[in-house]
Amino acid sequence: MQAVVQEIVGQMGNEKAPLLQVLLAVQDASPRNYVSEEAVRAIARSMRVSRCRVYSTASFYTEISLKPRGRHLIRICGNAPCENAGRAAIMDAIQKELGIKAGEITADGLISLEKVSCLGACYKSPAIKVDHQIYGNLTPEEAVAIIRSLREEFSNEHNGSPVGI
């Protein structure tokens, strides 16, 4: 961990590295999409700041997770335009399909489901985002179809290999 972090911090300017960008990069390097406690310690050491400061910054931002997440992230927008356009039904359908609630991870560690703030895609509410891709104008059925096919794609990608930290 220290080595991975040191490399990221080194590329970004060592003690002058922008902490938030370091945290995002460290998270991106983690297959479980999170910043572990070990990583927090490593960042503190590499950047010579207190752990408390690193943790504090990491804990503030919703796009940074301090707990392991699934390899893939499904985010469902919960703001008014999407809510109006049927967010709840989409959420229900996806929860049912995945067998988890918002904030949880599927048993195979493949997918996390999160409720988030506006994705800036309200012209096609209800909108969801899967990893880097936004899907809009969804009906619950369409949402489920998308999730189903992506899930298949994801499992093939990881080919049954156990999901590590």
Binding site: L24, R53, Y61, T62, E63, I64
Partner: peptide, 22 residues
Amino acid sequence: SGAGSYLCGEETALLSSIEGRK
């Protein structure tokens, strides 16, 4: 890149964010 905070659009919060703080 921001990291999920509406408030960071506020200019002084934005500065805090770039400087590595909450």
